[in-house]
């Protein structure tokens, strides 16, 4: 039985930037525990000798020539923007610092 706690769900919601309601935290705590129990079986299957597959078709060195292509116009860039000043996207005050 996995033990997903409310605090854990709240922490995950913070990492995922979603302002969950208390009710959502409650239901997700239960659901997540159930789901994690159901999928925890993957831990038992493969040993250290099994390599991980992150990509279904093994390929490498897919590279692009360094040649400039098309750019978006301001009209295209800002058409879907919630807020902008005609040159830049606008956001409300930032609390945190850059990484």
């Amino acid at each position: 039985m996995s033990e997903i706690t409310r605090e854990q769900v709240q922490h995950l919601a913070g990492l995922a930037r979603i302002a969950l309601t208390d009710d959502e935290v409650t239901s997700l705590t239960t659901e997540l525990s159930q789901i994690v129990d159901a999928i925890a079986t993957v831990r038992e299957v493969a040993g250290d000798d099994v390599p991980a597959t992150s990509h279904p078709v093994p390929m490498a060195n897919v590279l692009r020539a360094d040649e400039a292509g098309e750019t978006l116009t301001h009209a295209e860039a800002f058409a879907g923007a919630p807020s902008h000043d005609g040159e830049r996207f606008r956001v409300s005050a930032i609390l945190g610092e850059e990484q």
């Binding site: 897919v62 590279l63 692009r64 098309e70 750019t71 978006l72 860039a77 830049r88 996207f89």
Partner: peptide
């Protein structure tokens, strides 16, 4: 500002990266 941009530079849905040789 915002003239050297394409769908990936804005992270538009559906845009994909391809590595510069």
């Amino acid at each position: 500002p915002n003239t050297l941009i394409d769908p990936l530079s804005l992270g538009l849905p559906g845009s994909l990266p391809v590595t510069n040789e």
